[in-house]
Amino acid sequence: MTTVTKPTAPTPSSTSDSSIPWKRILLWLAIAFTVIFSLAPVLWQVLTSIKTNAAITADPTVYFPGLDQLTARHYIDLFRENQFQIYIINSALVSVISTILCLALGSPAAYALARLRIPGEQLVLGAVLVVTLFPYILLFLGLLEIVRALGLANNYLALIVPYTAINLPLTILVMRSFFQQLPKDLEDSAKVDGYNTLQMLWQIVLPMTLPALVTTGILAFIFAWNEFLFALTFMTRESMKTIPVAAAQLGGTTLFEVPYGPLAASTVVGTLPLVLLVLFFQRRIVQGLTAGSVKG
């Protein structure tokens, strides 16, 4: 997978002294808008999470807190009183396991759909494409019945299985488009060399696939980490909750005093892993998203 880096035409930055470089001004306005638009709400959360309660509720609103208005209290509360480390572990566990499962199930299927001619191939592909569009609300009732029938409520499996499934379509689409770009000669050569199909997949195809697996894995992890509806429905015991649900329910518990500080801190804690992922893997995320939808 290579990103398209298109040679952009040199922009006439200094066309002449008299004319104002409108294009440049417009561009920088758009960029400034993009940055402020994307960052401001997040930064406001960060700021709130490190302000003292007094500073949070102060009038006029405090934008630049002094040293005496800063505190780590909310984070400490989060872990001391609300046991947030449990939710982090739950979220991480469920997300990582479902991501690995999803890659393990989805990549072979993607390979088969890309390379092997099997009857019903078009049907499977079409179904995978359509299914990416289904909102989870359509699934939760049926899944709830399964969870109840199998007694899986408050069991990690109740999230791992659906999370694996909801990430399968994207995994199959992204990995398939990747496999299609691999030179076929390599696989033919492996067959002639004497690799059987599984050996070939494991020893020849997989090493070449690692970058795509990372890309897909990041996307699957993000979707699993962020899921709310199933986590809300299937995990009712406090010790089994994931971060999004636990954070959302922080505020609901105390009617009179809304814990603004801890709430803000919980959003920061819950989003931090994803912020790091985006920082390091921006390129891969973009690639994966476009490969999964546009090329489909």
């Binding site: 940055v35 997040v42 649900v245 709430l263 803000a264 819950g270 994803l274 912020v275 985006v278 995320i285």
Partner: peptide, 19 residues
């Protein structure tokens, strides 16, 4: 700027709703 621009998409909706 690109990294910043895709940030909102990656964050958990439930937490963003809190924000």
């Amino acid at each position: 700027v690109r990294t910043i621009a895709i940030l909102p998409w990656a964050l958990p909706t439930a937490l963003i709703a809190l924000a």
